[in-house]
Design a protein around this nucleic acid. Structure first.
Lengths: 205, 205, 205, 205
DNA sequence: CATGAATGAGAGTTCATTCAT
DNA sequence: TATGAATGAACTCTCATTCAT
């Protein structure tokens, strides 16, 4: 009946509190799953009362979404700064790709369980799905521009980059989650790096 | 306190009932999500009472697991019969890969939402995670053997096949879920096919 | 997400249970007020669990509405059977009116607190308001027809009856709730009876 | 544990603040209902903080009561000034009654929803009930004295006036809330006026 | 074997009231 | 005095699971 007013915290302590709710709430959701985390736990983890949660968020779902916004870049994709400030050319391409993969892997490791739990919600939660889609598009665009700047332009660059991101994502999952004990990840990485180069230098074909 | 005794149905009607619960329950879970599907709905869809569900299953989670077992092969991976009975050689390799991709895509289309919803549980649900892992291993092994039989053996074949499956999975998702409207899927497929050939024929390099 | 299925009880015990929820729930609401009665109390009073309440009713509000339907006739208006089977004429009119008032009063007494609490919700609750309006219309119509049958027809009979019902309602409230200790209710009744006769026999004027 | 000390505002600004809380709080309560109005809304409407509300009032309920005190006369009963300063005699009686009814109606219209919402609380809230009772008594006394002053004295004047007030209240509700579309309110008014005259001039009978 | 009514713990959410600043 | 952030008990409602029939 009565409009729920969401408070936008101004004071420093309030901002910290909101951030804590996002941080600890998001952590819990990533760790235990959205449906296995309740608001009481989130509040407790953040060191606040259950009531205050609803001063800063419309509902539990909102916490997830805010968490995605806050931590997505850090969690899902490595800072590509090093790429941006690295000159890429045919000679150091292999090295740059390996470094990129390493960074992706590091980031996945840091984020621990977040990625799987969250992609998991893509299906039943349109907001989350939209979010991931947007992230993917952004990531693709950044890399496309980077390559063009370094004279790696070619036909169908969008498509190529998309395939490459997929390859990197897959290898990341393998390395981070150690799912396949019988696989040699170094070998897989070699294969993937070679393929990426192949995709980026189609003329070689 | 007392162990719940799960009945293993012997009579034909009982077996049918259990199968219906698995089928319709699994369908609903795939469609709407595990947490958004309740046992009453499952029972209703299966045409049984809620009580009987607990004669055949320990709990709701069990239905999911049984559903996975029953339908996974059909749902997640295409019948590779056609590959098994097809001779693969360097001349028809391109064609065979394309056909395989097509079949993967068809299967993904058939299964609609199942795949996303279920991989979604991989993280918070160890049983589901294990299941998917096993499936992947099985799939890899089948393809590895197939390739060896057709003289596509090479070093690190397991790793190569794994990368290939990843590539195919990715392209499938793209094509089935139409997520990226700005991408030309035919072009992506061409790129992927070329890469797979490249992976399988490393000497060519 | 999932449709809430309201069970229509078939078995005798279930019907009794639903009736108990309505009866005790409605009683509590009438006694303590809608907002001061919670579903746990209703369930407890009815001797059932909170969950079962939501098998039979959409929500708490539904209980109120069902209660209104079930008990309204008995609560708000006296059985007018005795009027229906009494011949009314100018000679016994005074007596019939007094008997009618007595019956209204008796019913109000029986219903105790119900009437005030419920009319109280008329303002903020459209369903309740509609209900009361319909009841009033029905009551008016019954009395109008009764009078016509007994040759008390006259111009503007609807309006006359409405004013009469208002007079009776008012006197009922006075008598039942004893609000005004300084008033002589017998005298008030005399005044009202005289006025009602006056309204019904306008030619006498 | 410690008694809450309610500040009696002395400074002008404080007094204004308290008045604003009463005014806007009471407005909201009348409009939306007591239980559908929360203190945050009241504070916001009054342009004060939620905390300060509890400096001036013991609790939310107090605001309602103060509002009743402040605005009751204006809201529930028309200024009877015009009656007080009008000479009533048998010749202008009809006219005076009609004017009185008009004023009651006007006031009801102004107060819109207040009346219904508040009488609604009569049952579950003893304070409110007492308040209304007192108002009614005061109103009766004023009119009784007025009539006596104008030589309309008679036996049982209190009772007569009470019945009259009831009649006027009823017609007001009808006219203001348009509940019965099939009733001719002018006709009803005529009936009521005639009855009131009849009650006031019993000897005529 | 089968039913579906019944349970009750636990979920998300609200809000009168308090209290640190 | 005044603020509005914070509290936490209490509410409505859901649903996996049990059990009387």
């Amino acid at each position: 009946m009565s409009e729920n007013i969401i408070r936008e915290p101004i004071q420093k302590r309030s901002i910290e509190k909101k951030e804590k709710i996002i941080k600890y709430g998001f952590d819990l959701i990533c760790e235990k799953g959205y449906y296995n985390t309740n608001t009481a736990e989130i509040a407790k983890a953040a060191g606040v009362s259950t009531g205050i949660v609803y001063s800063y968020f419309n509902d539990k779902h909102d916490i997830l979404l805010e968490g995605l916004k806050r931590y997505s870049d850090g969690i899902f994709y490595p800072s590509i700064d090093f790429i941006n400030y690295t000159e890429i050319n045919k000679d150091n391409l292999d090295e740059v790709i390996r470094k990129t993969i390493s960074q992706f892997v590091e980031n996945h490791k840091l984020s621990q369980s977040a990625h799987e739990e969250l992609t998991s919600m893509t299906h039943s939660d349109k907001d989350v799905a939209d979010f991931f889609h947007d992230e993917e598009v952004k990531m693709t665009n950044v890399i496309v521009k980077l390559l063009q700047k370094n004279n790696f332009d070619s036909d169908d660059l969008n498509e190529r980059v998309h395939v490459i991101i997929g390859l990197i994502d897959n290898i990341c999952h393998e390395v981070v989650y150690h799912k396949h004990t019988n696989l040699d990840y170094d070998v897989m990485t070699d294969i993937v790096v070679k393929e990426i180069i192949n995709i980026l230098l189609p003329t070689k074909k």
